[in-house]
Design a protein around this nucleic acid. Sequence first.
RNA 1: GGUCAUAUAGCUCAGAGGUAGAGCACUACGUUGACAUCGUAGGGGUCACAGGUUCGAUCCCUGUUGUGACCACCA
Length: 763
Amino acid sequence: MAQATSMLEKTYDPKQFESEIYQKNISNFYPNNENNKCFSILMPPPNVTGSLHLGHALTYTIQDILIRYYRQNRFNTLWQPGIDHAGIATQMVVEKDLIANGINPKELSREEFIEKTWEWKNQSGDKIFEQQKALGCSAPWELSRFTMDENFSKSVIEAFVVLYKNGLIYKAKRLVNWDNKFQTAISDLEIQNKEENGILWHIKYQLENSNEFITIATTRPETMFGDTAIAVHPDDERYKYLVGKVARIPYTDRLIPIIADGYIDMEKGTGCLKVTPAHDINDFAIGKRHNLEMISILDKYGNMVPGYTPKFLEGLYLKKARKLLLEKLKEDQLLVKEEEITHTLPYGDRSGTVIEPMLTDQWFVDAKRLADAAIKAVEEGKVRFYPEKWKNTYFEWMKNIEPWCISRQIIWGHQIPAWYGPNGEIFVEKSEQEAIEAAKKADIAGDQLTRETDVLDTWFSSGLWPFATLGWPEQTKMSQMFYPTTTLVTGFDIIFFWVARMMMMSMYFMNEIPFKDIYVHALVRDEKGQKMSKSKGNVMDPLSLMEEFGADALRFTLAFLSVPGRDIKFGKEHVKISRNFITKIWNAARFLQSKGVPFENNISSIILTSDLNKWIITKLKKFQIEIDQNIKEYRFDYATRNIQFFIRDIFCDFFVEAIKIIDNAETKAIAGAVFAEFLRIANPFIPFITDYLANVLGIAETLIFSSSDNVLKLELYENAESEVDKLISIIHSLRSEKQITEELKNQIDDLSGELKKIAESII
RNA sequence: GGUCAUAUAGCUCAGAGGUAGAGCACUACGUUGACAUCGUAGGGGUCACAGGUUCGAUCCCUGUUGUGACCACCA
């Protein structure tokens, strides 16, 4: 004990625990093989470009609490860590980095660019691991996977080939969301809609062989050169007579028919819609119905292509072309009205530019077919959402799922394993060698093959995370032990991106759910409830919070604020309060130590004679039971409240105060043992201080593997509990009434000797 | 337009069919065996509004309003 005192006081300010240095170096992968209880969590792989933000800190804290809790209770645990290659995001960062170093990324070959990206990844890719460690994350880092690693890539290729051969992946020319900045297609999910003020231009098209005009309304006049019809509602009395006639697109010789289609809303605009199938999703559908030609008038950079475009606009970027065209239309009195409207425009969530619908060849996953099993698994309760309401969100999206465009025209990612023959033949194989062999059978020489240059959507590979990390398609021991995983912890913002995709992929390839529970946590907002963002400047850095208040305080705060179904309004003040609470624990330890309390006794072996001690034992066991329950129900908010209540209101405010009066050997032994058990119970939440105290107080080298068995074996002493509870309420009355009434005096006289002594000490 | 949430003390949030709870802030007192990063005591609430069910509703139901998120669409 004397030695422990010197450690406490020598290394640290005696009144406060400084947590930053204490980190146990223990392998955190814990297959103990004592039993077959397994608990596993997939760590959502952060982007390789990422650094830790508060949302990460929240999700990792929750996962770490779960992992530590089950590991303590002798489960075989796996918290699978890793990093995502984050295709577009990474390519963006690397390109910027290259430009900053005087290299033009466009002048690099594909191979050179990939090499540069790997270089960049290798020097900055592991930063986030260090940050996770600082937060106390106890993951087996040696098992980390990276989505672009050789083995993982093999799994990705395998998945693609199998899906293709079974008809679940296909190539098609369709309208996709096109990002002009990156010159790639993106999926529907990668779009952010923003409401904006815009102008609706009313433009006259002259009817052929007539002096009459028809007026359409559009927000995108420059696409008029891709028009292939004008549509009106079949019941629209104003325009009925025009159906079947033809109009001429201004500044061109092209004639387009006026058609009738029920999609048209008579109230909107002029009631006449210019139909541009290659540049609008709804127009595309109309075009299909009426067998219209699809004319693309923009190239991949968003410039007007020659051919259908009049000479004076050729080659111009669409916005410039629009401006020039409008001036011209005005001059020629074809622009009859400018109406101010608000409308929603799609923006690329990475590029920030307006997304154009574009007619291109892309690869798609037939998500509808994959969705069925994924929906069923949740409907049947094999996979459960916590809180349950998120299952509605999941169903809504899954049941209306659209084909998933998985090809990206970028470099960084898994290159699609497809080879083309000279006449457009497609060979999808796991390797070039196999493609050559397949081609040979079709009488195509290997040297005539060219490989698809597109790469896969990042989320295609992330979707395989639950089983690809465990070695799929090989059958591994890890997979046997840990698949399906127990709990997925994630934010609601990636239910579609990731959770839904993992569900689909896992049901298809493993024929089994990827996880049993999905715990959906909140979004961390600032104290005013605003989303944190760099542009608003309200981002709080977890690392500096940890530096100021300690990792335990941050973890405790995040868990405390994790009320299901409510976003977290996060203020620094909260962390300070938690830090104060950590200090309270620290000081309790200092006091017990100064009293010469022994900490090494096994709690279940101490013989209990006094009500006071039976009381604290009863409270301790109830505390343990509550914690167990709350962890099982993912109520980290309750669990942290339990911890606070037990150590402050139960242990410090009453029991420690009582020790000052009743300090016999039994009570001291109980105090030390209860405190030791408290440290153990709190360890998953606040690992730094608890492990440190356990260590210096001689309780254990670490609490990381200590189970709750001893506490659960204890008896509940209901009588002693109510006796002491009575004493506590007497003390409250004594204090608030500030004088002793006859009634209180009688109540005190009814107490047993030891308790009476405590009550009398208050008087 | 559709869906899902949410409304409780000045603030952040718990809560249960039957005397409204915590932390912070506020007031008073306290450095009498750890802790002022603390302790003790205290003030403070028509539990958004309107109906309904009930012996009893802040809690359950319906509607209204406010707030938030997501999805879809926009000529």
